[in-house]
Design a protein around this nucleic acid. Structure first.
Length: 399
DNA sequence: TCTGGGGTCCTAGGACCC
DNA sequence: TCTGGGGTCCTAGGACCC
């Protein structure tokens, strides 16, 4: 492509509006303008609230109790994982019609590099509107798009476009758009970093942008300084949307569960061990389904006071066997030697250091383990696939 | 009746090896 | 007896994102 035809704003950040709840209620028109949210059970938090609920102040990660206090008529809708995946894949397919360079960042957002598409399809803004129209026509949900020359700016722009809009930030308007914003709007700047930056006198993105890099390095350390400096100048990612690691190459898989009531470490040990088995089985099934094995097993324990600790063990041989994951998890749990009266709120099991099964070193002889466990796992996997979860499982989990 | 569940990445110390 | 520096792996915690 000639330089003259290169778009000045080639990066699109497409973000579905209130994705989880939009998917959940798209076939329930009666809920269209009613405050609704996914999540928010007795001990849970709001996963995703629609805009009618947000008008009451309901936000993601807010406890269900607080959400209902703010918005008594709030309707709670269940999360349909399969439907979410299905709609996400369909949306991904729509993106692919416009450019081969699509990076799904999560189920509900993506970066698109439309550099090569402009000659055939029109300006980035035209493409953005066409994407929005096709998503709405085919999936009956809305999305918002940020258009800019860097990923970081496109991401901020899409947030400002919400709901159901487009915001374009051409280079000549970059400073006007970006500099007045609070530093907390930058990707990767959460509450902690924001507070620290404010303390240091960096309240706005402009404060960062107008500070020489060496000064930032001195204040923040090299890593954060360079990252924030680039974000504040809109030069992150060199203007390109380079696909990173493909989504299917997960580094870890885990499962955790908050108990309906706090459990006692000692008295309820049997319950906790069986919960660890449930979680290990869930994780093991996912690891096997992905054709992978993992080297490290991590157990998470959250106490009643919300303090959270982790303990991990790296195995001599990677595994995808439920029984091994569970045995390791129980070993880690017991090694904590918690007092009998210690109250636990949550336990979790995670398998890390995932690699493809065929690349895993399998040593014979010495590490020979009964292969029966794995065969049993695979039989259970097949049954679950055929008949659904809950039909087959470890005997100790049956009531 | 505060505070879910799925992840990624970074830091930092200690062990261990060369 | 004292003295190096670099590199990697493991573990634990924490910030952050959706």
């Amino acid at each position: 492509m000639s330089a003259a035809s290169a778009p000045k704003t080639p990066i699109l950040h497409v973000d579905m509006d209130a994705f989880f709840v939009s998917v959940a209620i798209r076939d329930r028109p009666e809920l269209r303008d009613v405050p609704a949210a996914v999540g928010g059970g007795p001990r849970g938090v709001v996963t995703c609230a629609n805009y009618a609920a947000r008008a009451f102040g309901v936000r993601s990660a807010m406890s269900g109790v607080q959400a209902r206090r703010l918005c008594p008529p709030l309707v709670s809708v269940p999360l349909d994982h399969d439907l979410v995946s299905q709609v996400s894949a369909a949306v991904r397919e729509i993106f692919g019609r416009f450019t081969p360079s699509v990076e799904m960042v999560s189920v509900d957002e993506a970066f698109l590099d439309v550099r090569s598409a402009v000659r055939l399809l029109g300006s980035p803004v035209t493409i953005a509107e066409r994407i929005r129209a096709e998503v709405l026509a085919e999936q009956r949900i809305t999305c918002s798009v940020g258009v800019a020359m860097s990923r970081g700016v496109a991401k901020v722009a899409s947030r400002h476009a919400k709901p159901d809009g487009v915001v374009v930030v051409p280079p000549e308007e970059l400073t006007t758009f970006l500099h007045p914003l609070d530093v907390g709007e930058l990707y990767g700047v959460g509450p902690k970093a924001r507070a620290r930056l404010h303390r240091l006198g960096f309240a706005t993105v402009g404060d960062l942008a107008t500070t020489p890099l060496p000064v930032l390095v001195h204040a923040l350390g090299p890593g954060s300084a360079v990252r924030l400096h680039r974000l504040a100048h809109g030069t992150d990612g060199d203007g390109r949307s380079a696909p990173r690691r493909p989504l299917e190459t997960d580094r870890s898989m885990g499962a955790q569960e908050t108990f309906g009531r706090d459990l006692h470490a000692g008295r309820d040990r049997a319950l906790i061990v069986s919960e660890l088995l449930r979680l290990s089985a869930r994780v093991g099934r996912r690891v096997r389904a992905a054709g992978r094995v993992g080297r490290t097993v991590t157990v998470t324990v959250r106490f009643a006071d919300f303090r959270t600790i982790t303990r991990s063990r790296t195995l001599t041989q990677p595994t995808d066997v439920t029984q091994e994951i569970h045995a390791t998890a129980v070993g880690l749990y017991d090694a904590l030697s918690l007092g009998d009266d210690t109250r636990l709120r949550l336990v979790g099991v995670r398998v890390e250091g995932l690699l493809p099964r065929e690349r895993a070193p399998r040593q014979g002889m010495l590490g020979e383990r009964p292969r029966g466990w794995r065969d049993a796992d695979l039989a259970v996997d097949r049954a679950v696939e055929r008949f659904g979860k809950g039909v087959v499982g470890p005997a100790s989990l049956l009531r």
